[in-house]
């Protein structure tokens, strides 16, 4: 009887483990499936002309260069605003903030910022940047809108990286006559940098792939030339994909999937860079 029970327990354990292994494998399937599917459907569209040419024949032929460049501009623009602001806010929260009403308010704001649907950011950006501040439908307005959306990701990952730097380093640095700012700059930031960079890239990656926030703030349906200043509107990969998939009749399907593939590669490249930074830093880390 005891023996039977014991064997039964092991069977239950084996079943349990099999189940959770299966579940873990299932999570891999969608991403692998998506990549393979898009590669299969859109791979044939990729050519030098597709990557470096302008669209023509009502976007049914030619390349997607303006959309690629536009997404690059928007990503850089977003980085210019959100990275310094996000890191500064994270340093304040992790290193200086006392636990008081103001700090709690800031944290509450960040949490709620992260939960706002992206289309609402788009409307907010339209109201504030495009109309009120009169930036027009422009790279500037779209970048600022994307920055606000990206901030919570950057702030929370940066704060977490700063907090993970051992307290003892700070104490030692202070005890050696360094000021708090020197301690933050020379020790804390240096050690937290890989983690902060990872967060920054993940945040920007999300910004690069978003459609809704740029829909009313900076994205153009079609432009015959590249944007010349931050006050110009721009084409962008995610919006372009939306346009050619829903707004243009008789669109060749491989161009749609080709565009999706380029966007996917853009975003995944950023992801790989983040992963490499993180694993390299982890190998080098001295604590």
């Amino acid at each position: 009887m005891m023996k039977l029970l014991a064997r039964n327990r092991h069977t239950v354990q084996r079943l349990g483990f099999s189940f959770i292994t299966l579940m873990a494998v299932v999570t891999v399937l969608p991403i692998v499936g998506t990549i393979v599917f898009i590669l299969f459907k859109g791979g044939s569209a990729i050519s030098l002309e597709f990557l470096t040419g302008f669209p023509h024949d009502g976007m049914r032929a030619g390349g997607i260069l303006p959309a690629i460049i536009g997404t690059l501009y928007l990503t850089i623009g977003t980085a210019i605003f959100s990275v310094p602001l996000g890191i500064a806010a994270a340093i304040y929260l992790a290193e200086y903030a006392k636990d008081n009403a103001l700090t709690r308010l800031i944290r509450l704001a960040i949490i709620n910022l992260a939960g706002i649907p992206s289309v609402v950011y788009g409307l907010f950006g339209l109201g504030l940047f495009v109309l009120f501040l009169k930036f027009g439908t422009s790279i500037l307005a779209a970048s600022l809108t994307l920055s606000i959306m990206t901030l919570p990701v950057i702030i929370s990952t940066a704060e977490e990286s700063l907090r993970s730097v051992p307290q003892a380093f700070r104490t030692v640095s202070i005890s050696l006559g360094a000021t708090r700012w020197q301690t933050i700059r020379r020790i804390v930031l240096k050690e937290a940098l890989p983690g902060i960079l990872t967060g920054v890239i993940l945040g920007l990656e999300r910004a690069a792939g978003e459609t809704a926030p740029i829909l009313f703030t900076g994205a153009a349906f079609f432009l015959p030339r590249l944007p010349g200043s931050p006050f110009d509107a721009t084409m962008a990969l995610p919006y372009h994909l939306f346009v050619i998939s829903t707004q243009v009749p008789e669109m060749p399907i491989q161009i749609q999937y080709g565009t999706a593939l380029v966007l996917l590669v853009f975003v995944l490249t950023m992801n790989v860079i983040a992963t490499v930074i993180r694993s390299r830093a982890r190998a080098k880390r001295q604590w």
């Binding site: 051992p166 380093f169 104490t171 005890s175 050696l176 006559g177 001295q286 604590w287």
Partner: peptide
């Protein structure tokens, strides 16, 4: 703190 130095219980070398 430059005039009054301190050594702690657990050695904490800075990461350098």
């Amino acid at each position: 703190r430059r005039k009054v130095g301190m050594v702690f219980a657990r050695p904490v070398p800075l990461p350098m």
